[in-house]
Design a binder for these strands. Structure first.
Lengths: 340, 340
DNA sequence: CATTGGCACTCCGGTCCGTGGAGTGCCAGT
DNA sequence: ACTGGCACTCCACGGACCGGAGTGCCAATG
């Protein structure tokens, strides 16, 4: 069955090219892999694979290099998932178990991921919209100045200041606090916002208190502030130094994308759908400036839908290993968030 | 006075070299600057400056390039401080005024700084040790599980979990909360920690409550957790793409330093002393791996001692402009922190 | 029909000149 | 102290050259 061998050839080429960073020729292939055929046969297969668009030749008389389509086939059908070793699992556990708060979890995850994959790692902070409200605290800094603290289930904390027109007595403050908490605590953030809205919309006599109104307004604003959904953390840019060649084509656009967090967020966002690890290769998708880089990402948190994490690297990368690392870290992070 | 002219020559060389990125020769110098002498004279001056260690010749028959020592002299004595334009000031104001919380201030500052200087910008989060406690919140997640939220004057929030051995009644919780706040609120963080310590050290009968002890312990631990002093934020790495040449010598070590935040923190730390903008040039200081980069930084916050911000870039940079930008941003950030 | 050995061909990458130009150092003159 | 002149140095650049790796094709073979 020569069709089968062709796929074996493609797999071998991807593996060799990833390992050596050099176009791979027919002779080298038969030497390194036991294909039991002659170089000439391989050449025929290569030519066929090139016709079908899986391989590319930088120039006549050079070896072959996988195309995006080639990598795609490799990832989808040819790569055996590399299971994480117990050593890796132990490393992940010991690295992440020491985290004390949400910031710390994100911080450690991103650094860990960068270290494991030797690529640029990206972790998105848990999005507001999927969080529930754990507690709302109202503190009087002065009689007319309140501090609102909004504590979410993910461990995230938002704070806002509110200026009042008139003094607020202690018992009024306590009443306000408990009413707000009653309405919001335990709710999904969107539901909490509307519940709070109801709190002031009901005309409760003529003394609809200005303080309540101001507090609710500030809270709703904080809850619907999706600006903070857009926060991500990046690590491992030093790994870019490994591709000293192809600076212009690879490193520069990547650095720019890392600054333009919007692009990264979109890329990560696409990965949140479905439970599995998503791989975007080269020019797939609308971001032509990242045509020579791939994104390996997945969701994490409950239903893998809280937020995303992953890595960005050259299309020429060790997909099986990277996918395994991303998946392992995502699972562990999900577990930690679940526990806390 | 030929000594004076020599300094003018040095200044001109620094300016030209920064602008053109190429070694500058005697002929080009007299053309671009009105020095009113012949190239031969300049050559003599250059030779003298080279003997004194201010200039360097890549090879015979090439132009001159400033040495670290040359830049140092330029920065200390030859550069006229470039005042920020009103346009720049407006840009700073409009960019930073929208910030809603501490994270946001830091975020915006670092991006602004990167944009203004076209270098890699670094901002250190306000250090714990100079902050005062604004409020401590104790929330019962379950009867035996408490969430502590520590809010500092800078807007920073720390949180910790505490597990209790026995249930805690609501009124006990309220009492605990008010005692803790009484001791800590308004105090410098160090003082707050010791005041809290006193709270449990006094043997108040036999029922020295385990809950109090656990809470205080966690708070003191959070307050003395200098790990979080080490947080910094980086932006503008895309600006590294501008030196496409000298990748190995310039970009790689810089990327590594940016990952190794410890080094950055030390560099920034040195800049916190004294009110003015500090410039570290090339191999000055103990970090030989950053021998071709300079650091321009200054403190910010009250007394400029709260934390530091600045930029990292090649020794060949526009010092006057960069120093002005760093100073302007630091001042504005200080003002914002002061107001909030 | 798939496979194979042979062979001519292509093209890259490195090396080795040769040359032009920018810049210097020095010296003698003002 | 400054300047013009001059010989010298050295790099950067371009062209020529060559070895090697790799290919495509073809005829032969099981």
């Amino acid at each position: 069955m020569q069709e089968e061998r062709r796929l074996a050839v493609l797999r071998a080429i991807v593996e060799d090219y990833v390992a050596t960073e050099e176009p791979v020729g027919s002779k080298a292939l038969v030497e390194r892999h036991s294909l039991n055929v002659s170089p000439a046969t391989i050449r025929n297969d290569m030519a066929a694979l090139e016709d079908e668009g899986y391989l590319h030749q930088p120039h006549t008389s050079a070896g072959r290099v996988p195309t995006d389509k080639g990598y795609r086939l490799f990832v989808d059908r040819l790569s055996t998932v590399k299971p994480t070793t117990t050593a890796e699992r132990r490393a992940i556990a010991s690295f992440l178990d020491g985290a004390v708060d949400l910031d710390d979890v994100v911080h450690r995850s991103v650094r860990l991921l960068a270290q494991l994959t030797r690529q640029v790692a990206v972790v998105q902070y848990p999005t507001l919209s999927r969080s529930t409200v754990r507690h709302v605290e109202v503190v009087a800094l002065t009689p007319t100045r309140l501090l609102l603290v909004l504590i979410l289930s993910t461990g995230r904390v938002e704070q806002r200041h509110v200026e009042l027109d008139a003094d607020l007595a202690d018992d009024e403050l306590a009443a306000l606090r408990s009413r707000v908490n009653l309405a919001a605590t335990g709710e999904l953030i969107g539901d909490a916002a509307s519940a709070l809205g109801d709190l002031v919309r009901v005309p409760e006599g003529e003394d609809a208190p200005a303080a309540t109104r101001a507090v609710v307004e500030a809270l709703v604003e904080a809850m619907s502030d999706h600006r903070s959904d857009e926060r991500i953390m990046v690590a491992g840019t030093a790994n870019l130094a490994r591709f000293g060649d192809s600076f212009e084509t690879s490193v520069r656009p990547l650095l720019e994308a890392l600054e333009e967090q919007v692009i990264l967020l979109k890329l990560l966002g696409e990965a949140t759908t479905g439970g599995a690890v998503t791989v975007r290769i080269g020019a797939e998708g609308p971001y032509q400036e990242l045509s020579s880089t791939s994104v390996v990402a997945t969701g994490y948190g409950p239903d893998d839908a809280l937020a995303s994490l992953g890595i960005v690297g050259p299309t020429r990368m060790d997909y099986p290993g990277t996918m395994a690392a991303v998946r392992a870290v995502a699972r562990y992070v999900s577990r930690i968030l679940d526990e806390s």
